[in-house]
Write a protein that binds this DNA or RNA. Structure first.
Length: 320
DNA sequence: AACCCGGCCAACCGCTAATAA
DNA sequence: TTTATTAGCGGTTGGCCGGGT
């Protein structure tokens, strides 16, 4: 027999979370740490299933999550990575640690797809309709330009009539941001975080960046630091372990596995603290593929292109 | 003022792989 | 080894909100 069910199916509340529920959840996690979601509804009295609790935490309450408008650079990163990886939102999100995969997915579906379409038709109607030019190739061209020139809006100037709305859920979003701030002290001092830090694991909960977000300048600095941390993480964890053969055979398809199975838990922590191990496993599932691979792919791709020279000035890796 | 419509996004759904009993 | 459950992921949906008429 397997394990007992995580929660009773009857009496489960659905729909938007209330601030009160958030506080209960955050308080519980503050005390016990994330993980063991099965016990959360029981121990907190929340009428939510464990899955809902986990999603609420990972997508909304987790410290370090940045909400609101995407910067032009983030926009470029998303376009670029989407062209590269496809709809692998978790993989894409691993390059933007402050954004959740859900956030990126929503932003892509609601903003970027339209912008790209508009841009493509403005840039070159022939290219847009040319069936011999793959969509991913087109998007690569577009995304590289976006990265090097700042944003799609700057390029297709007319598309810039599309102004990004302010965060519509700002009232409650700001309150959850405050909840997240409550956790900062804990995140800095918790044993779990120390374990992650000691094992050089990619730290997705960049709680310090909360302060960085206060100013645009701080934003740039935090972007820079995020990517540097990713690079250092990859270096520390032996980039060579990435399965290049898999990657090379599937440049733009869906075999890019963000889970980095080659990094074994046992290499990271002694096999005695099951809780920490579980968290490590959870975090490693969103670790990014080596950037050097992405760079290589981009360089290879550019070899056969006509007017990509100026686009190669900046890439997600070299632009920082 | 009332209604309609479309955009946005948080949350849910359903699937797969991993894991625990 | 088998089976039930969890965790993670991508796709989809439903409700809220703002703008237009």
């Amino acid at each position: 027999m397997g394990r007992p069910p995580c929660c009773e199916k009857v009496g489960i509340k659905k729909g938007p979370w209330t601030p009160e529920e958030d506080i209960i959840l955050v308080s519980y996690i503050q005390e016990h740490g994330p993980g063991n979601w099965r016990s959360v509804p029981t121990n907190t009295g929340l009428l939510r299933c464990s899955k809902s609790c986990r999603l609420r935490w990972t997508n909304y309450l987790r410290p370090g999550i940045k909400r609101g408008n995407f910067t032009p650079h983030e926009e470029g990163m998303i376009i670029h990575l989407q062209a590269l990886l496809g709809n692998k939102w978790a993989a894409i999100a691993s390059y933007l640690p402050q954004r959740t995969d859900n956030d990126i997915k929503n932003y892509w579906n609601t903003h970027l797809k339209k912008k790209l379409k508009k841009f493509q038709s403005a840039l070159d109607p022939h290219m847009a309709s040319d069936s011999t030019t793959s969509t991913s190739h087109q998007l690569n061209i577009v995304s590289r330009r976006s990265l090097s020139e700042g944003s799609l809006d700057n390029m297709a100037s007319h598309a810039s009539s599309v102004t990004l709305k302010n965060n519509q859920s700002s009232t409650y979003a700001s309150s959850t941001a405050n909840i997240s701030r409550l956790l900062e002290g804990w995140m800095r001092s918790s044993p779990t975080q120390k374990t992650l830090s000691n094992t050089n694991h990619l730290k997705l909960n960049a709680s310090d960046d909360l302060q960085d977000q206060e100013t645009p300048a701080g934003n740039l600095v935090s972007r820079h630091e995020e990517l540097e941390s990713i690079l250092s993480y990859e270096n520390l964890n032996n980039v060579a372990s990435w399965d290049r053969s898999t990657c090379d055979s599937t440049q733009s398809d869906n075999k890019l596995n963000p889970r980095c199975d080659s990094i074994h838990d046992d290499d990271l922590v002694p096999d005695r603290d099951q809780k920490n191990k579980q968290i490590i496993r959870c975090e490693s599932s969103t670790s990014a593929p080596p950037l050097s691979f992405l760079e290589k792919w981009l360089l290879d791709e550019s070899a056969g292109q006509v007017d990509d020279d100026q686009m190669m000035e900046l890439s997600p890796m070299s632009s920082v």
